[in-house]
């Protein structure tokens, strides 16, 4: 038996760290070398000497934070070596460019899931099953009350929500990278044919997606002084940070909604302050997490990013899979 100290990857200062390669995964503070799973800001920090990611993640990051970061890129599946460890990126289905990261050292395989989902999403590569000995998985939605509907059903609900109130301006709040593009892609396949506007931050990401070869419906960049009549019956995509405060005063006669996995719970919907919630997520639901744990064939599983207590107990009782805890 190995002791915890000898694990190839462990938790250090609240971040995943591989001592042998002296490399950090999605670190929250500046380090020498950082592997980045995807371009969401909670997986990235400024000031690292060197970043390593997929090509798409690198481009999205530079779009978001500027060109002056040093970043090395690899294709999905392409192996590279650091201190004798073979490392490779594999699609995680979360957003464009998102990846799982595999480490192989002395015939021992480690897999960091990154943020992932199994649901179909035409704006990024489908999750790839990767076999491993050790799995470090996220578990944001690790309870069986989370069971996602097909995304086209949600898109149809959104379409109905807009068209049922033709006299209103419908503001849909969603994360500007990933969720917004996925929604645009799905909504363009529904009966809703009205105008779609998007906030600058979302508009920018749409363009990046297009540059990377993803077909995203054209939207109009929202100007602050749009005539209210023009906006009637149309859809406006905005980042959640604008839902509080004075920004909404730019609009009259609005209805608001938030697109997030948390919206499947009525109490959270009510508390969110939005009129409506659409339960759509770029993370795996309960079944998705279980499927990945099983199909990865991992003998040892760690969870992070979420409450893992119930999930761990369930895996032990039902699947005899032992879930390990990082010493932090």
């Amino acid at each position: 038996m190995r002791t915890k100290k000898e694990y190839l990857i462990r938790y250090k200062d609240g971040n995943l760290y591989c001592e042998l390669a002296d490399i950090w995964i999605d670190p929250s503070k500046p380090v020498k070398k950082a592997l980045i799973t995807h371009a969401h800001f909670d997986h990235f920090t400024f000031g690292c000497e060197e970043y390593i990611s997929t090509k798409e993640t690198a481009i999205l990051l530079k779009e978001r934070v500027g060109d002056n970061i040093k970043i090395k890129t690899f294709e999905y599946g392409e192996e590279f070596k650091i201190n004798g460890i073979n490392i490779s990126f594999h699609p995680s289905g979360h957003i464009l460019g998102s990846s799982q990261i595999r480490f192989i050292f002395a015939e021992e395989k480690w897999l960091i899931s990154g943020d992932f989902k199994l649901q179909k999403d035409q704006t990024c590569k489908q999750y790839e099953i990767v076999k491993t000995d050790y799995l470090i998985s996220e578990c944001t939605f690790g309870l069986p009350i989370f069971k996602w509907d097909e995304s086209n059903k949600i898109a149809n609900d959104i379409s109905k929500w807009i068209t049922n109130s033709p006299e209103k301006t419908s503001l849909l709040f969603c994360y500007s990278l990933g969720k917004a593009q996925r929604l645009l892609n799905e909504i363009s396949q529904t009966n809703f044919k009205g105008n779609i506007y998007s906030h600058g931050s979302i508009h920018k990401m749409n363009n990046s997606y297009r540059k990377l070869g993803i077909d995203i419906k054209d939207t109009i960049k929202i100007e602050n002084k749009k005539k209210i009549d023009e906006l009637k019956g149309s859809l406006i995509l905005l980042p959640p940070s604008l839902s509080k405060g004075s920004y909404l005063k730019n609009f009259k006669n609005i209805q608001t909604a938030f697109a997030s996995g948390w919206m499947s719970i009525r109490a959270l919907r009510k508390r969110s302050g939005y009129d409506k919630g659409f339960a759509i997520s770029d993370h795996a639901d309960w079944d998705g997490i279980l499927e990945v744990v099983k199909k990865s064939e991992a003998k040892n599983v760690f969870f992070h990013h979420g409450d893992s207590e119930a999930l761990s107990k369930y895996l032990l009782e039902k699947e005899s899979i032992n879930v390990l805890l990082f010493s932090k």
Binding site: L143, P144, I145, F146, K147, S264, I265, R266, A267, W286, D287, E309, A310
Partner: peptide, 19 residues
């Protein structure tokens, strides 16, 4: 455990039934 998150028996069961 799910109930603690949802706060309503009828709703917990309706969410679990989706599965």
């Amino acid at each position: 455990t799910c109930y603690l998150k949802v706060g309503d028996s009828a709703e917990v069961i309706s969410l679990l039934l989706k599965n």
